[in-house]
Design a protein around this nucleic acid. Structure first.
Lengths: 162, 162
DNA sequence: TATTGTTATACTCTATAACTATA
DNA sequence: TATAGTTATAGAGTATAACAATA
């Protein structure tokens, strides 16, 4: 085959929006666990990084602080997360999932995985391997591409997985 | 390898939002051809299907009629498309790209392809093949999944590519 | 009565600019 | 002065419900 980078670009530009729409549509339609994609990703991050600050989450998800502040407003209003001042530095907030946030996240994740798995059920094993390999190859190129050129002045950033 | 459908689902759910963010960010930052992803996709559709009705576009892109009506408002206001009544059936509108719409679309497309191609430049040929193969396998599963169960009562729908 | 589209309304997502509180 | 967040403002994307015009 030997695809050119341009072919990869074209396929990506055509297929990624389709996939995004399918994912968003499913999450929206979940009557038990209705979440937007950014909300879902924020809850996922907080599950792995309990106590994270607003800046931590905003950077990982790739949103500005005001946008993330508002998104968190919504999560707090729905009692999916808590927001408290950091006693060590009262400028910072400490974000945590509530029990309800944990369980809603799990419900949404399981439901979405099931939905996509069913959608992909017709893929033959070789195709499944191709998809997994493709996404694993793309992921590092898509993760905070700006960071590449930044002086890494930001602190810990210990976490970079998922 | 032999990935399970669940692994495919998990990778998809993690990587697609990242890719979407990169694409959206690039389109937004285009000072010459600033377009949202749905606007870009709508212009692409109209390039291939000049004279399409609002319903045609909304169905293909996967938006509701009110949403598409507003999106088209914006395109018309920016003189990227025209909206006229169909003389044969005055309930329908006929959408067309303007010359400016054509050229802006071409600019945006070339720029985004270049950007993604550069981003993907570090992929080795085997990886590029995997990505293209993966997206080609996924595309039919992601295209109007609802249609699958519909009685295909809608008219022509001659077009289904891209 | 059914179809096409628009308007009204209401959220979420998104950003920039201006501000507050804390360090 | 610099940093963390919030508020203000604005526009796009998204949906449902109600409506108008046409068939």
């Amino acid at each position: 085959m030997s695809a050119t980078p341009e072919e990869v670009a074209r396929e990506t530009l055509e297929v990624v929006p389709l996939a995004m729409r399918v994912i968003r549509g499913h999450m929206r339609s979940q009557r038990t666990a209705e979440l937007s994609v950014p909300q879902f990703r924020t809850l996922s991050f907080l599950e792995r990084r309990p106590g994270a600050s607003l800046t931590d989450v905003a950077e990982f998800i790739g949103l500005t602080l005001p946008t993330m502040s508002k998104l968190v407003d919504g999560l707090v209003a729905r009692k999916l997360a808590t927001r408290a001042f950091d006693p060590a530095d009262r400028r910072c907030v400490i974000l945590e999932l509530t029990a309800r946030g944990h369980s809603l996240l799990e419900t949404a994740r399981a439901s979405t995985h099931d939905y996509l798995a069913e959608l992909f059920a017709t893929l033959v094993p070789a195709e499944r391997d191709q998809v997994v390999a493709a996404f694993r190859a793309l992921r590092p190129l898509l993760t905070s591409p700006d960071e590449t050129h930044r002086p890494a002045s930001r602190r810990d950033n210990v976490y970079s997985g998922n």
